[in-house]
Simulated scan of single mutants.
Amino acid sequence: MPDELDLLCRANPVPAHGPYFGDGPLDHHAERRLELLLAGDERRPVRLRTPRARLWWGLAATAVVLATTFTALLGGPSGQPAVAAPRPLAVRAQSTAVPLDRMARLAAAAATDGSPGLRKGTHVQSWSLGMSDDGPPVTLPEERVVRWHADDSHTELVVATDPRHPGRPVLTDEGAAPHLVADGQVLSRTDYPPSWSDAPPEARPPHEPAALRAYLAETARPGPGAGTLTTSELLDSVQELLDHWTLGARESAALVRTLADAKGLRPAGQVTDRLGRPGQAYTYDAPGVRRMLILDPRTGAVLGLETTFTRDDPRYGVKAGDVMDYSAWMR
């Protein structure tokens, strides 16, 4: 047991008592981009962190929970881990692949009455792969709800939950080594004071494609002269936008048109997302990873975004086909 405990303790390369940046920890998008810059062409995988600082859970974990954690991370008597990464979404065989240009026309037709409308705030279910030099990779599922109030303050609620396995314990790493918590356990509830920022992604997104393209460019590269985005940067900006706003029909139509004008997004066919919803999938290949965008086939609304490794990296114990992260947005 001491050896297993040491292994578990070393699984978190950023301990809760370690030094942080003066302005707070980077979000997982910033960490990924920083890591790509530092790694150059290697494109080494990143240990993803949750978007904002969370409370440190696990101080009151019992011996039973710890024992269950070891079983989940290191394998039980059968040697098979109890907590496994989700499999990549599979495109339905012989399904029809709808080009993005046609999807943009469908989305525009669905937005003629402007309903549903734009809403500030988000409801997202996410899975992210936590990696370290010393421990095996583990998948960390959570659900996040952000609600804004009339005075421009907002509340963020983060819950440990995995709809694939309702009722089962959920793995988390809230500032500590990965450990199990009860399904539905509140990881954090944070109230933020009023904010009147007029910069993306806090600013209201436009519903004209050209204006939305400029908005997303400023989200990726704050300040004047953002320039043209690469497709990878565009997808990062889309994720940032959807982590702040629940798009209305007109904004979704503008977004699909913007995506249709991007290079490298290929129609793949029909999928069922991790919340059981039908969708049209579009893939984009970048060095070492494949990104899959899932759109609602009727309205063009973004349902999800998945990033999957396309090559092995023994340093982190990841293999081609492992899911790096996945987000599923809901209304």
Rank of each mutant, 00 (worst) to 15 (best):
T231S: 10
D183I: 07
Q280C: 06
L55Q: 15
A84F: 10
S78Y: 01
P297W: 09
H28C: 03
R47I: 08
L55W: 07
G75F: 10
V181T: 06
L48Q: 09
V170K: 05
F70H: 10
D285M: 06
D191A: 15
G114Y: 02
G300Y: 04
D151V: 13
G184D: 04
A286I: 09
T69I: 09
A107P: 01
P224K: 11
P201T: 04
Y192S: 09
P267T: 07
R291W: 10
G76D: 02
T161K: 09
Q94T: 05
G75E: 09
P209H: 07
V289E: 12
K319P: 00
R92L: 10
V256P: 01
D198K: 13
G114L: 02
P141C: 05
R290Y: 04
E143F: 05
P287G: 06
R204L: 10
Y20M: 08
H123P: 03
P141T: 03
T155D: 15
R257A: 14
V170H: 01
M103L: 15
R298L: 11
E142I: 00
A82L: 14
Y215D: 06
E35G: 05
P222I: 02
D191E: 15
A214N: 06
H149F: 09
P169T: 03
L55D: 15
V145A: 07
T68K: 12
D313E: 09
D152Q: 13
E306L: 06
H207G: 14
H123S: 15
G300L: 07
H123F: 07
T231V: 08
A82E: 08
G304N: 02
P193H: 11
T96M: 11
H179P: 00
A93S: 13
P169S: 02
Y326D: 06
R213W: 00
A67G: 14
Q80N: 10
T112C: 05
R92N: 10
E156G: 07
D134C: 06
V124I: 13
L37F: 08
L241G: 00
T96A: 12
S197R: 14
T231W: 03
R47L: 11
T96D: 12
V64Q: 14
R33S: 05
D325K: 05
T272Y: 01
E202Y: 12
S95H: 13
L157P: 05
V186P: 00
D113W: 00
R331S: 11
S153T: 11
R311C: 03
G79T: 06
A39N: 04
R274L: 05
D23E: 06
P19E: 14
A53P: 13
T68I: 04
A110D: 15
S327R: 08
Q80I: 15
P136A: 12
A320V: 13
A268Q: 04
A61Y: 01
P205D: 10
M131S: 09
T161W: 03
A84H: 13
R274T: 00
